[in-house]
Design a protein around this nucleic acid. Structure first.
Lengths: 228, 228
DNA sequence: AAGCTACTATGAGAAATCTCACATGCTTTT
DNA sequence: AAAAGCATGTGAGATTTCTCATAGTAGCTT
């Protein structure tokens, strides 16, 4: 986590993403602008987070570790989005793990010093309710949408979400678990993508050769498929 | 919607489910206790709801109608649970449809007269955040759990959720859509359940012959399945 | 009465997906 | 150095699920 201190840069963020509008009191003494590198851990699972983050730029993933020490990907977090809000309001006792996929720029709000003020701030609570509500709606939409689609569609989505610089390099074991299919089958479909010229296999993963087609697949409209 | 007026009954509800604890002001002038019959519409889709409900007993289903006039089942609502909270906070402009599955007892809070007070009440907003957060967590858990399981498991769950008095009588077209499988395949699996003696076909639906087995299936533990 | 739509129902073959079995390479443990 | 654990890869056969085709029934329309 790198704190951004260049004053003019910080001001610019505040201008574009007016965090101050979320609170009835002055939040700036408690907040700073921070950045996480791609792959860096934003929240460690099981620990009580010290900050409430508000992701203003970037993409992260939400992880859950099982008893056997395995990690599984639960969901993606896209800006703009709170991180750590569940723990803050106590909906969750143990925090989930969150890792940056791309570079993530966030407001970091120190909880310890401001918790009482925050949790009694009508403006903030309203915003949080709205955020949680919309997230729930989005999730529901996504889930019910996903469930109907065969793996190639979901995989296309997944690749687009996790790839960086046109390069997909997730572990097959983790992907297959997240996508709810067998490792074996995932490999079949990946091989099929390669055969179709959508992906190109590299020694460290897969290179996206035909983004357009991948996007078409991901957006999945019956018509599109019929044509293919 | 039937309003419950017998004073001692109303008091009993308030004692068991202290709605008053959700607010910093006295909500009772705005609230009443109401009951919906099984199958009765609790919220009509597309209309601005007049009440915020808090379901204290019963089970309902959340519906969404498509452009073509078709309804699809999105989710189940189990007590205790808010109904209409998304519309209240403005996370959703058009309300979803909600229909009672079993008899549903709710607190009905008149929105028009109390909206301003409610939306500025810290206590209520905190509770709502907590509710929304926990619901989101539950949903996520459910969805990621479901996606991995074959139809028989999900169907077992679905039957248990929708059946009344041991009788399952959903329309196959709607069920198959909700479960994300073909009509054809749903019938196969239902037929299989009948063959296995779990269900018994009646002229109006299916009678649950072996609840225990259905529950085992629904809870799906690898061990259980291995044995079968 | 004929036609239309929607739900139910069943059969047969195809496609998607799973299970199991086995081989390889890379790390970590012993 | 051997053993064990884990991710990758591939093959073959089994199971689940889909597609398509066909029919019957009920209600509604014309």
């Amino acid at each position: 986590m790198k704190k951004i201190v260049r004053q003019n840069l910080v001001e610019e963020y505040y201008n574009h993403f007016p965090l101050t509008d979320f609170f009835n009191f002055d939040i700036t003494p408690y907040a700073s602008v921070v950045q996480f590198e791609s792959g860096e851990m934003i929240m460690q699972e099981g620990t009580a987070p010290a900050y409430l983050y508000y992701l203003i730029n970037g993409r992260a993933k939400l992880l859950l570790s099982h008893d056997n020490g395995r990690m599984s990907l639960i969901n993606f977090l896209n800006a703009p989005c709170f991180i750590g809000e569940m723990e803050l309001i106590g909906a969750q006792n143990m925090s989930n793990g969150v890792t940056a996929i791309t570079i993530c720029t966030c407001y970091a709000i120190n909880i310890n010093s401001s918790r009482n003020k925050i949790l009694k701030d009508v403006k903030f609570l309203s915003h949080l309710c709205l955020f949680l509500g919309q997230k729930a709606i989005g999730n529901t939409y996504n889930y019910s949408r996903n469930q109907s689609y065969p793996l190639d569609v979901r995989l296309a989505n997944f690749i687009l979400l996790t790839a960086q610089n046109g390069h997909y390099r997730e572990k097959h074991t983790e992907s297959s678990e997240f996508l709810g299919v067998t490792y074996r089958h995932l490999l079949y479909v990946l091989a099929d993508f390669v055969k179709r010229g959508i992906l190109i296999k590299t020694n460290s993963g897969y290179y996206i050769n035909d983004v357009t087609y991948l996007q078409k697949l991901a957006n999945y409209e019956t018509d599109v498929i019929k044509v293919t």
